[in-house]
Structure formats: C-alpha cells, structure tokens
Amino acid sequence: MSIRKRYFHQYLVSWALFLVACILSLLLAIFLPLSPNNSWRYTLAALPMFPAALWVGITLARATALTLNDMDELQRHIQLEAFSFSLAGTATLSFALGWVQWWSEFEINYAFVPLIAGAFWAVGFIRARRKYQ
C-alpha cells in the first residue's frame, strides 16, 4: 500500500469510528429512559463523543502532518495557500454568522463549521493549483 493510500485509509477509519460514536450517542439520547429525574441522560449520551472526537483530532492531525511531509515544496506551498484561504474564509463567515445570530432568530449548528472549512479549503486548493499549472 502506498504512503498516500495508507494516510487516506487512516482518514477513512477515523471518520468511520467517529460516525459510529455519533450514532451511538444519538441512540443513547433516544433510548435512555425519559423522566424528570434523569438529568444525566444527555450527559451520558454525549460521553462516546469525547473520546471519539479526541481520537479523530489526533489521527487527522497526525495523518495531515505525515501527508504534508510526504509532499514536495510546491505541493506544500499549494496546501499552505489552501489552508490559509480556508482559515480566512471560515473565520470571516463564522464571525458574520455569529454576529447575525447575536441579534436575530437565525441559528446555525456548529456541525456545519468543518463543512464550511472543507468547502473553503477545496476552493483554495483548486485556485492555488490553477495558479501554478
């Protein structure tokens, strides 16, 4: 298995485990007995999320670092531009949405933040890649 494929495999396994933790958490929230006395219900339901999030965070950081180490200098430069674009875009958009949320009824789930960051990264990556083609 090539190095790139191995890292991609690590990404997939991490996200699959995270997805399992999400589903487990959801099932616990649905099926734990509902009564006024069990205020621990949602805390217990959220428990699988913490180790899963920590695991995914560490694995993704490690796989990303190894992938970047494996790239040549131009590819690293392209990734830097893509990550910078993503950081700037996500920060600006999340601040704007947070600002709107402050004084209006508008609400957005935090789960959208990685999706927004991913979308900005993809745009930044395509833009940077075209620049050096």
């Binding site: 040549d72 200098e73 131009l74 590819q75 430069h77 620049k131 050096y132 083609q133």
Partner: peptide, 22 residues
C-alpha cells in the same frame, strides 16, 4: 530531483521560484 512533474513545469514557466535547497 525527487519532486513532482507539476513543480518542474511551474519552475520552467516561471510561476514558481524554487527553494534554495532545490
């Protein structure tokens, strides 16, 4: 040179300046 073909192309066309080690 242990780099990608894209890097060579970008250097040749003047779109990218290589690092000192390269």
């Amino acid at each position: 040179l242990s780099v990608s073909r894209q890097t060579i192309n970008a250097i040749e066309t003047g779109r990218y300046d290589p690092s000192l080690p390269l």
